[in-house]
Write a protein that binds this DNA or RNA. Structure first.
Lengths: 233, 233
DNA sequence: CGACAGGTTGACCGTTATCAAAGATCGTGG
DNA sequence: CCACGATCTTTGATAACGGTCAACCTGTCG
């Protein structure tokens, strides 16, 4: 089992911030919160460090309190795909957390990152003691499952054009109301996320621009000129 | 909200079989089981009937006790993708079950089908009362999430060749040990599931056969002659 | 200021979708 | 139980979509 790069720095004080950040806990009472604090551990990672590898045993839930984490997978033929990027408040490690299983993905700190960890046995005790937490996690899971299936359907049925356009539309939606967005990752990563190549991303965005649908600006910013046009491609 | 085709036949007796079938319940005591029976309702659907549409409110968990159910999605551009097929013991309806949300997929009975339903409020009460059920469902969800992400990664990184080969390999694996498998669906559906066309499936299987990797037989049966060769495409 | 990763552009070609038509299979009703 | 129609499947010809390789450009950071 390879652990190279996994050299996170453990802080043995209990970080209140990260717990209260997380949607799955923030409905709880103060006393319950402090019980959770007791089993939470704060860990820091430097840019590029790996939190876990595919093949590692999963034994903790990781909750991001600061920084960004890249979650990616390697396909059977060895190609990398970016699955998602975690921001503060997001969590990961859950996939194999409820059973004896191995991670199937990789988690890498994209910047200086701080996470809160809860190990499996502690988490399971919490879940049995406070069943409402399970309901929260179930809700989160069902959302993510829906997202994952929606994404799969897009790959199965839409061409690159449309996948890029939908990505732009959804990124814009997150900035409620604005007509300009900032790509949340490099075009290289975006290509990996959308199952295409940086060259194609570059070309398609140029096409969109020539059709008057968008305007590319410095610093990964893109102004959407014709959202409807973009979505009817 | 369209409900055409949703004309399932309700049986008001409580079907013991379907509950004990389900992995998420089968660890419980007899008394707990009988408590679950009380809130379960058995419903039958004829071939082609729709259990729910995308856009319907989700308010029940559906557990298959007899038959087969096709779960499919429509993409933004209106193309259909087969997401999975449910067999007895599988469940669905969970995606929007833990929140006020709408179904994003369609569920259609492929044959004469019987399902057990538990409505949202009853299920939530059960989960709060017996937290171990939540853990079971969480385990199931995390598996399915892993599957969905693996599938997405395949679409993003592998070509049709490989996706078909991997599908054959996994279907074979399900028949532990055998060197012959039966496709669990029509090639048309398989194409939809794998994000390709029936024509391409047909051609690729012929190629595999010409390369001596497989042998196609009647009744959707395929003999795998060279599994390793298939996986190194 | 230089190096290096990221990004762009062009030329080319492989893969796979599409359209069309013929052939096989399945389920149904006579 | 057979015949018919509907649907699924196969095969061929064609073209578009997008990946790959190579070269060059750009910006960012030590």
């Amino acid at each position: 089992m390879s652990r190279d790069g996994q050299q996170g720095c453990y802080h043995h004080h209990h970080d209140k911030m990260c717990v209260s950040l997380v949607p799955i806990f923030n409905h709880l009472e103060v006393e319950q919160m402090s019980e959770i604090m007791k089993v939470v551990q704060s860990v820091s990672y430097k840019k590029g460090e790996i939190l876990y590898h595919a093949g590692d045993h999963s034994d903790s839930l990781y909750i991001v309190s600061k920084g960004k984490i890249r979650i990616y997978r390697l396909s059977e033929s060895g190609k990398e795909q970016l699955v998602r990027i975690l921001n503060p408040g997001d969590f990961t490690g859950e996939l194999a957390l409820f059973q004896e299983a191995l991670h199937e993905s990789y988690a890498e700190a994209m910047t200086e990152t701080q996470v809160c960890m809860i190990n499996r046995t502690d988490l399971q005790e919490l879940l049995l003691k406070y069943p409402t937490i399970s309901l929260k996690i179930l809700t989160e899971f069902s959302n993510r499952l829906d997202e994952a299936e929606k994404q799969t359907t897009r790959f199965a049925t839409e061409k690159v054009d449309t996948r890029i356009a939908l990505f732009l539309a959804e990124t814009l939606e997150a900035n409620a109301g604005a007509n300009e967005l900032e790509l949340p990752m490099s075009k290289k990563d975006l290509a990996s996320y959308l199952g295409t190549t940086p060259e194609t991303i570059s070309r398609k965005l140029t096409e969109f621009e020539q059709q008057g649908l968008i305007k590319q600006k410095p610093h990964r910013r893109i102004e959407i000129l014709d959202l409807d046009g973009l979505l009817f491609i």
